[in-house]
């Protein structure tokens, strides 16, 4: 880490990740931010400690008589092969590389020099990488729910502040923001939204179904 991270994840988002109730797309941004931020790594460990306390305190259920011996019998079985998880590659932390299946992103242009690469998604949300040329604004957009945006390279500013590498912006539906990339190296972010981004200008909105954004 070359400079301190000043924008962190809210505790409840980390708690939801720890408990497994956060959707896959957001979980990816949480895992990527925690990879870069020890403050949030400690928050996650604290939430997991609380989870462990709850696990121990919740009512026990008796297990079948043979379960222990069946488990002991399997201790010497060869462990199922687990492919080594992809490592960090350049600006992409390990969980992002895992979502990319170990390959660097294949960018698709979405206009204005902005490129994107969708890396995951399910009913609950979509995660994507965005590549924003220096000085370029991401088209005016809103979103229907929570949006998490983590800076991997460069930086951006919007009405709420300035975001550097490792910083994460947490936005809700109320925020209509226009992130503009810093001068210098292109800005690369990984972002998760719970719904397709809705662009507020006519042309991008028309193209939205085509690009899947």
């Amino acid at each position: 880490m070359t400079h301190p991270i000043s924008h962190h994840l809210p505790a409840e988002v980390i708690a939801s990740y720890a408990a497994g109730s956060l959707g896959q797309a957001y979980s990816l941004v949480v895992a990527a931010h925690v990879s870069m931020c020890d403050t949030c790594r400690a928050e996650l460990a604290a939430q997991e400690a609380a989870g462990g306390v709850v696990l121990e305190a919740i009512g026990a259920a008796s297990v079948s008589a043979g379960l222990l011996s069946r488990t002991l019998d399997r201790l010497d079985d060869p462990a199922p092969p687990e492919p080594a998880p992809p490592a960090r590659n350049g600006v992409y932390p390990a969980p992002v590389m895992a979502a990319l299946k170990g390959r660097l992103p294949k960018w698709k242009a979405v206009g204005g020099g902005v490129k994107q690469c969708v890396i995951g998604g399910d009913r609950d949300g979509i995660s994507r990488l965005l590549f924003i040329p220096p000085g370029q604004a991401v088209p005016d957009h809103g979103h229907n729910g929570l949006e998490l945006t983590l800076v991997l390279q460069g930086g951006f500013s919007d009405a709420t502040g300035h975001f550097d590498v490792g910083d994460v912006e947490v936005a809700d539906a109320a925020l209509d923001h226009v992130p503009t990339a810093d001068p210098g190296p292109p800005c690369i972010v990984v972002a998760a939204t719970d719904a397709p981004l809705r662009f507020n200008t006519f042309l991008p909105r028309l193209l939205q179904p085509l690009f899947g954004i």
Binding site: E12, S16, A19, S21, A45, A50
Partner: peptide, 23 residues
């Protein structure tokens, strides 16, 4: 919350465990 039955917005209101010092 820790069983994974609450959304993050519901968790925000489910305060109670002091996590500051362990953190």
């Amino acid at each position: 919350a820790y069983l994974g039955e609450l959304t993050h917005t519901e968790i925000r209101d489910a305060t109670g465990l002091p996590l500051g010092t362990i953190k």
